[in-house]
C-alpha cells in the first residue's frame, strides 16, 4: 500500500513539474457566498423560520407549541435527549406524551419522534446544525419520522460562512436543511426517504 502512496505522489509531482507556474489561490471575501435575496425581517429567527418553511421544515417557538404540535399529530411516544428531558417534561403540554431517554435500536421504528439539542442553526438557509458531541444519540436524531431540534436563541447563526467558522473540532457535524427527500422517481418530490419526514426546529 505504501508503494501506492509513493507512486501517487511521484506521479503528481511528475505531472505538475512542467507547469511554468502554479495557479494562485484567489482572494475572496467571506461575504461573497452569503445570500441576501430574501424579504427583510425584523428578527433573525423570522428569517430562519421563513427559510425553514421554504424547505418544508417546521419552525416552532417554545415547548408549549411543540407539545401541542406532537399531540395534534398523534405522536405521543418518542426519544428525548436525557439532558433536555426534565425541561421538556416540565411543560404541561407534554402531559400526554411518553419520552424515553435511551434509544433502543431494537425498537427503532417505535419512536415516532426524537428530540435532540441543536448545536446551532443557520438563518440564511433554514438549517439545523447537529454536532456529535452535543447530539445524545445519532439514531435518535435520524431514525424517527419526526426530528425535533431544540435551539437556544444565542446559537442561531446568520450565514453558512459563520457556521463553517464554528465547525470547531467536532468529528461529525451535520447540517440538516429540511426533511429527508428524493426526486429520484420521475422527478416527483417525496419526503422522508431514510431520515425524518418532518424536521422541526423549536426555539426555546
Amino acid at each position: 500500500m505504501n508503494d501506492d502512496r509513493d507512486l501517487i505522489f511521484s506521479n503528481i509531482r511528475k505531472a505538475l513539474e512542467p507547469l511554468p507556474e502554479r495557479a494562485p489561490y484567489p482572494e475572496w471575501d467571506a461575504e461573497m457566498p452569503i445570500c441576501r435575496e430574501h424579504p427583510e425581517f425584523a428578527e433573525r429567527w423570522d428569517l430562519y423560520a421563513y427559510k425553514l418553511q421554504q424547505v418544508n421544515g417546521t419552525p416552532l417557538r417554545g415547548l408549549k407549541a411543540l407539545g401541542e404540535w406532537l399531540v395534534a399529530a398523534g405522536q405521543t411516544f418518542g426519544y428525548c435527549d436525557p439532558k433536555l428531558v426534565d425541561e421538556v417534561r416540565a411543560e404541561p403540554a407534554f402531559a400526554g406524551i411518553t419520552l424515553e431517554t435511551e434509544f433502543d435500536r431494537a425498537r427503532v421504528d417505535e419512536y415516532l419522534f426524537g428530540i435532540t439539542l441543536a448545536s446551532g442553526a443557520i438563518a440564511e438557509t433554514g438549517t439545523v446544525i447537529l454536532k456529535d458531541k452535543e447530539t445524545s444519540a445519532r439514531l435518535g436524531a435520524l431514525a424517527p419520522w419526526t426530528h425535533v431540534a431544540i435551539l437556544r436563541p444565542e446559537r442561531l447563526l446568520a450565514s453558512t460562512a459563520e457556521a463553517i467558522a464554528s465547525l470547531g473540532d467536532d468529528p461529525s457535524v451535520i447540517w440538516a436543511t429540511g426533511p429527508s427527500k428524493t426526486a429520484d422517481v420521475e422527478g416527483i418530490l417525496i419526503e422522508g426517504v431514510h431520515g425524518p419526514g418532518t424536521q422541526i426546529c423549536c426555539l426555546v
Binding site: 433554514g126 461529525s172 447540517w175 436543511t177 427527500k181 431520515g195
Partner: peptide, 12 residues
Amino acid sequence: QQLTVYSQFIKG
C-alpha cells in the same frame, strides 16, 4: 437547492 438537505462534515 440552496443547500442539499444533508451536508455532513466528517473528520474522524
